[in-house]
Design a protein around this nucleic acid. Structure first.
Lengths: 207, 207, 207, 207
DNA sequence: AATGAATGAGAATTCATTCAT
DNA sequence: AATGAATGAATTCTCATTCAT
């Protein structure tokens, strides 16, 4: 009987995990399309087979899914980023690895969503920041700051630079995803060259 | 009768044009603080001497003020941008002029808002973009794209580049405004060098 | 024109006052029938010509109407009670005056409601305490305690006695209202005799 | 299988009857604390080892537990009351016996609840009546009415009187329970004297 | 025009009850 | 029987927009 229970419990647990993820996926799309404020809980559950009540079985509030989304993204991306960072020997290799990891991450994310039959629609008042991505930005920002902090002359404005790198990666990443053929390698190369060239041109930079 | 009222109340009756502008100013502040969704019409009129009813005499909807604000920004910024562009002789001088114009614009905007005594309150999910600024981004993006289109080797990915330039200017601009001393010249220099250096490093770029 | 405005304003103010009272009256009935928890805002506004929105124009929450109701009752009954108390020379005359005032008050209240075409229905889980009445009880309790405090031997348990008097007046009052012919004089006489006789029989009481 | 479970878990499986009682006990506490409306089924089962599903195996609805609780109280109290009534020879002895039995009952009930470690939390609109106690009131009311009906002159208003007696017993009972030292004898004496004295003073009463 | 109360659709959230396991 | 996730109607409250004055 305990075996039977295990199987039953196993099914239950599986369903629960699946539902949690289903809601999270739907929320990612909806927040991405509409932004936090405009997105309603009903918008989210409409994209699932679940009921309003089920939503609240899994998340205590709209805010909580939002946060869970951020956690989810950060949790999945952080190890990837760290692994790449460990292998890097200089700024260029770090930058290339980080950007590549980020583009791979969002490309995979993107195709996951696409597999769900979800197309990113254009919206009247665009808010493309998923909390997930915001968490990823924070990660990248910190890592960049760490590396830049060690390798660059003190005259470089670190905040400006970190923020610029993030911004470029983010925007080019979005552009990349919009295109028919998602070319991760090409986008990575573009960003790396642009940033490296730019950094070398900054006053006080080693180059 | 309005004359009678003027005399009685002792203050000049606001003209129609003035009222439109009053609402627009209030809306700029409120949308900047709360974003489109969270901002309510009552939030806006609370910052004026007008009534909800008056709001709807001047604008047909909340959305319409939002759009009007965007138009207003674009309309005010376009001549500035064009004037700078006219003086520019090469990509560097154009870039510097455009970025400088943009930073001047947002710095002025910023001090206007500050003059309203706005203590930017904590907001759950902060939105710093007024529709006005968003419109300005669009202007700059277009101008940059035009110039880049003419001046660069065909191999450069124009979308990526324009997008990157805007992103950098926008993010550095936000950083600049956050700081105690708003240093337009310094921020401009940073952005120009970064982008120029980066562009030169791109494959197919002239040099 | 100011005259016109006055009239208009006058009408406006009148409507507002009327609406406030309308909601209060409806709330009195609904809370009386269903109790605070079971009563819904929609139950209340259903008994008026107003909309949900109007409810929230006048009261910020369900709780606020509840409190307003208590205030209203206390505010209207307190002066009546005090006037009667002032004329009283001994415990009997005070008691009679107070009980009479209370019965007059609830009888009038009752006929007001009846005039609105509202009949007190029986309910599954009876909650007859209107916040209004609760406030009145508090008033009476205090007054009784004051009088008893002065006139009775210290051995009498004041809390028990005050509470008992209130309870008797309250319950007999409810019975009185249920009957076809509302006989305020008869009910008053019953209560006064019962309590007076009872008090004299208590140990330590003067009688 | 339940045997297997018993052995495995090391505790005796609760029988159906026990479960019913467990739920009833939990419900008594919860309804006492929160009242019918505010109490949720989950509040009730949270105080047991059972599940929501089990709740509905034993009772068809929240309302049904409420009623069962009332039945339970009435059923437990009726024999006590009747036993006392049997011994009574006149109105005074009956009254004393009935009041005493009632106070004993609620005192016991009260200490049961206290034994649950219940720190009667602050509740917005406190409800001290369990349905059980309400049923007991009804019992007493009926018994009193029966006796009064036989023993008093026809001029006495029976409804008023029965209602008054109940009201006094109920309120004094509540007061009694609030106090540090629960003095059943003292409270009984107070109520009996008050009512007896009062009854004798009524017009048409024998005394 | 200006006013601000009225409207009511729609949002987030709760909870009694059902039902698959 | 027991379990607890799923359901969705119902609740409180908000706010863009309308409209009588």
């Amino acid at each position: 009987m305990s075996e039977v229970l295990d199987i039953q419990t196993g099914k239950r647990e599986l369903t629960k995990a699946t539902n949690r993820q289903t809601i999270l996926n739907a929320a990612r799309v909806v927040f991405g399309e509409l932004g936090f404020d405009a997105a309603t809980v009903r918008d989210i559950i409409r994209r699932t087979n679940l009921s309003v009540g089920a939503f609240y079985n899994y998340y205590r509030s709209k805010e909580e899914v939002f946060d869970a989304l951020a956690d989810d993204g950060a949790r999945r991306f952080r190890p990837i980023l760290h692994a790449q960072a460990a292998k890097a020997t200089d700024f260029e290799s770090y930058l290339r690895a980080a950007v590549r990891a980020y583009f791979d991450f969002i490309a995979e994310e993107h195709s996951d969503l696409a597999a769900f039959g979800m197309a990113r629609r254009e919206v009247a008042h665009p808010r493309t920041d998923t909390p997930e991505m915001m968490a990823v930005y924070a990660e990248v920002r910190q890592a960049l700051a760490d590396v830049l902090d060690r390798g660059l002359a003190p005259k470089v404005d670190l905040d400006y630079l970190a923020t610029s790198c993030i911004a470029v990666a983010r925007e080019v990443g979005d552009q990349m995803l919009i295109r028919e053929h998602v070319d991760v390698a090409g986008a990575t190369e573009f960003v790396v060259r642009l940033i490296l060239g730019g950094v070398r041109a900054l006053p006080g930079a080693g180059g």
